[in-house]
Simulated scan of single mutants.
Amino acid sequence: MISPIFFVFSLIVSCSYALHVQDFCVADYTAPQGPAGYSCKDPAKVTVDDFVHSGFGVPSNSSNVFKFGFTPAFASNLPGLNGLGVSLGHTDVEIGGVVPIHSHPGATELVVVAEGSSIIGGFIGSNNKVYQKILNKGDTMVLPQGLYHFFVNQGTTPAIIYAAFSSEGPTVQLMDTSLFKNDLASDIIAKTTLLDAAQIQKLLGGTN
């Protein structure tokens, strides 16, 4: 049985620690960035604007071959997110547009369809099994960390998708560009993918 004296002492230590825990670590973009992320801004210089992002009211730029655009609210442009392990993104997908197959090596993603219908969303498991579903407005889907995933807007209206990440600065790796828009020699790609040089050059312009 825990003695009353030990319990009281533990409670005092816990309360003392809680009083010294920093509420936040707003990113200081003027200081050097280390492996753990941004340095903390002087709390005396922190304002409410460090915790507010207003970029989602404007459509993302979707003028590309995939017909989709993405606007982030990451620690890199919303300093109050620094160190909190969460972030948000806004994706616009035009009619017939796609979010190409990609992964976030260090983050799980949770999406919700805010506008649109008949959107194919899915991911590929490490066993190469595909998990896909037709999503409509209001539907939510979780995309496990590190797995390749995609969206296809086969509906008749543009789609808006919000994505929450378990990282304040998730990285992204597009499968297409990783394979065919890198500085790896085409003959190496040919040997490792069983594609011939002509096929590689045709795919997204090839490499070198």
Results as ranks from 00 to 15, higher is better:
N77H: 14
P158I: 06
G89S: 14
A36P: 10
L184Y: 05
D176H: 06
H104M: 04
D42I: 06
F150E: 04
S76H: 13
G55Y: 03
Q145F: 00
L88E: 10
N208M: 08
V99I: 10
L11H: 00
S178F: 05
F66Y: 12
V172K: 11
P4E: 11
L110V: 12
I119P: 02
D196H: 03
Y29S: 09
V152Q: 04
I2S: 15
A163M: 10
F165Q: 05
L184Q: 09
Y29E: 07
I120F: 04
G116I: 01
I5R: 13
L179R: 06
E94Y: 00
Q154K: 14
A75R: 06
I2V: 14
K202C: 14
G80A: 07
N127F: 00
N127S: 12
A44D: 13
T156P: 00
S14P: 01
V58N: 09
A163G: 14
F151E: 04
A197H: 15
N61F: 15
F7C: 00
T193Q: 04
N128M: 13
G122L: 07
V8L: 14
D92P: 01
L194C: 13
D176P: 05
N182E: 01
P100K: 02
S178L: 11
D139V: 03
Y17I: 14
G121E: 02
S167H: 13
A197P: 00
A159G: 09
V13F: 15
D28L: 08
F51C: 06
A190E: 07
F6R: 15
S186A: 13
S76M: 11
G34W: 02
V21E: 15
L179S: 06
G57H: 10
I101V: 12
L195E: 03
E94M: 13
K137V: 08
L88A: 12
K202Q: 14
Q154F: 01
I124Y: 07
P72N: 06
V21K: 15
L135H: 04
G34T: 12
S62T: 09
A198C: 00
L184N: 09
F56D: 08
L84A: 02
M1H: 15
S126V: 02
Q173N: 10
L204A: 14
N61M: 10
A75Q: 08
F68I: 01
C40V: 11
I5H: 13
P170N: 08
C25E: 08
S178K: 07
A18V: 00
D92G: 07
I120E: 11
P4S: 07
T171P: 05
T156Q: 10
V130W: 01
D50S: 08
G155F: 01
K41M: 08
T91H: 04
L110P: 02
C15I: 15
C40R: 09
F24K: 10
G116L: 02
V58E: 15
F7L: 14
V99N: 05
N128S: 13
D196L: 03
G55V: 05
F66R: 04
K41D: 01
V65K: 15
D92C: 01
E115L: 04
S166K: 03
Q201C: 04
